[in-house]
Every structure is written in C-alpha cells, then in structure tokens.
C-alpha cells in the first residue's frame, strides 16, 4: 500500500472534499438489499443440511457489532445493551471498535455526507460474513432530515442493509425484534447456494 505524504491541512481538506463529492455522485441510487437468496427455492442438499444448520447457528449466536453510533439511536442501543434488555444473552455484548473483529454493523443514527466515507470504509474493512441492521428512521431513509443538504438519505445508499428497524428511536424491544429477524435470516442461509 503506498502511503501518500500529505503535508498541509488545505491539501487534506481538498482530498476529503473530493472524496465526499465523489461519494455523493456515486450514491444517487440505493443499493439493493441482499435478499436474493431468501426467495429462491433452495434445493437443499440432504448431506449438507446439518452442516448448514451448524454453521448458521454458530454465525448467528454471537454477532459482534462494530461501533457505528452517530446519533441518538445510540442511546437506545446502549439501553438494549444494558442490563434490563440484555443483548449479552444473544452473545452480542462485545461491541468491537475494530471492524476486523466484528460481523454486524448496527447503524444507529443519522449519517451526514461528511461522515459517510468513513462509515463506508469501516464497512468495507469488516471481514465476511457481515450483516447490517439499519436502526431508526434516519438510517432507513434519512428520517426527518431527509431533504437536508448534508444528510445521507438512508444507509442503503452507501452500504447494503439486511434488516430495517423503524422507530425514532426504536424501543429496545423493537431493536431486539430486528436482531431476532436477522437471526432468522441468517438461519436460512445455505452454504451450498450462491449467497454470502
């Protein structure tokens, strides 16, 4: 990896501004949700069903989220992670700052275009298999800030989203329901099919 030596802060600003403008130009259409392998008739190989079941059970039973908490939905995530609505019972209390050690991104909060390249980079740096839960109205579609000059209208403009949890902010029970939906989605994954 070549490392560019950037010396002046105006150069840094210009690079950042260029990257953001390019990202805006690239993200005019939402990325389609990864659900193709859910609908098709899965011809399950009898021999592999138990392997599938074991793998999917292992993958869904300890989804480790990565930090992606730009705004107020983060408080509801913290509440979900605290003792009353425990996410530790799902094996998810390990919220990793490093994307290499995480396999779930719960996007809790409004995303601005200025922060968007960083979030996309963190998503890209996560190791597969990885999933995304869009939490809250701002993550689904930009929420009440949709027509703003600086807000990304939904995380699915920059990253593919698996589960959408509506609410402003969603109650912890709603977020846990969304996590359960993601577990069901992962349980349907088959390694013999063309999916992830």
């Amino acid at each position: 990896m070549e490392v560019e030596e950037v010396y002046s802060s105006s150069e840094l600003d210009r690079k950042e501004g260029k990257a953001i403008n390019e990202l805006i130009a690239r993200s005019q259409e939402p990325i389609p949700d990864p659900d193709q392998w859910l609908d098709e008739e899965l011809k399950r190989n009898i021999l592999l069903t138990s392997v599938d079941a074991m793998l999917d059970w292992a993958r869904r039973s300890s989804l480790w989220p990565v930090f992606c908490f730009p705004a107020c939905c983060a408080f509801e995530f913290m509440t979900t992670a605290a003792s009353r609505f425990d996410i530790s019972r799902f094996g998810m209390e390990i919220v990793r700052a490093s994307p290499r050690q995480a396999d779930l991104m719960i996007t809790a909060g409004t995303l601005t275009w200025k922060m968007a390249p960083q979030v996309k980079r963190i998503y890209d740096q996560m190791a597969e298999p990885k999933w995304v839960i869009a939490m809250g109205a701002c993550a689904i579609s930009g929420g009440i800030f949709r027509s703003s000059y600086s807000v990304v209208p939904g995380y699915n403009r920059i990253i593919p989203v698996d589960v959408y949890v509506p609410g402003c902010p969603p109650r912890p029970e709603a977020l846990l329901y969304g996590i359960r939906m993601l577990h069901q989605k992962i349980a349907k994954m088959s390694i013999a099919a063309k999916g992830k």
Binding site: S10, D13, E16, G17, K18, I20, N21, K114, Y149, S150
Partner: peptide
C-alpha cells in the same frame, strides 16, 4: 477562513434564505 462544518467543495451557503 475555510469551511468548518461542511466539506471543502460544497457549493453554496446553506443557511441563507435563498439556498
């Protein structure tokens, strides 16, 4: 004097009434 909350290369000044 350069932009601080918006990014360099943003066209316009958003809080003006005619933005």
């Amino acid at each position: 004097l350069k932009r601080i909350v918006l990014w360099d290369g943003f066209q316009g000044h958003p809080l003006r009434k005619n933005f």
